[in-house]
């Protein structure tokens, strides 16, 4: 993990105080560990920023975008906040549930797709919003879902 260590040092140098780099560092560590943060990843970040592992865990668990369980190769997130709800997000969620055969919050058997609900993604004008691997698909209607899942499984 010497590479990760050095990358974190580089990010740390951007800030007046190195501790500010803990979030970018966690993002780097999550990438380096296949999309989630095993304890070892938290230790690496702590080591690189001269923090206690617990301090790093405290920060990491505060945010929704850090994962503490393995995730699928793809990440499908559906916004169900007010504007999307009014635009039929429920039907989109149902569509994914039946296409993937898993409830939100789970990862498909084949480990291909992690499917979860998210709070307002800031696409309310183009609802319902679906975010695939961190890129917005606006709007996504129930009828678009089968094709979308197809595309993910294929890629």
């Amino acid at each position: 993990m010497a590479k990760l260590y050095n990358r974190i040092q580089k990010v740390g140098a951007k800030y007046p105080q190195r501790r500010s780099a803990v979030m970018p560092a966690l993002r780097l560590a999550q990438e380096a560990h296949g999309g989630w943060l095993p304890p070892e990843a938290l230790r690496d970040v702590a080591d690189a920023l001269d923090l206690a592992p617990a301090e790093v865990e405290a920060v990491a668990t505060f945010y929704d975008m850090f994962n503490f369980e393995p995730v699928g190769r793809h990440l499908v997130e559906v916004c169900t906040n007010l504007s999307c709800a009014l635009a039929g997000a429920k039907q989109v969620v149902d569509a994914f549930e039946s296409e993937l055969g898993i409830p939100p919050g789970e990862t498909s058997e084949d480990g291909e797709v992690t499917f979860r609900l998210i709070e307002c993604a800031g696409g309310c004008g183009y609802a319902p919003v679906v975010v695939v691997d961190h890129l917005y698909r606006e709007p996504t209607r129930p009828e678009d879902v089968p094709g979308l899942v197809e595309e993910l499984r294929g890629s």
Binding site: S20, M23, R27, L49, A58, F62, F66, I118
Partner: peptide
């Protein structure tokens, strides 16, 4: 410096944002 958040509405609140930017819980 461009600093990316990690998913927490409260970090829009200015003092929480600063805490988060300093590397603490927001």
């Amino acid at each position: 410096v461009l600093h990316r958040g990690a998913g927490a509405y409260i970090c829009g609140e200015e003092s929480a944002l600063l805490e988060s930017l300093e590397g603490s819980r927001g």
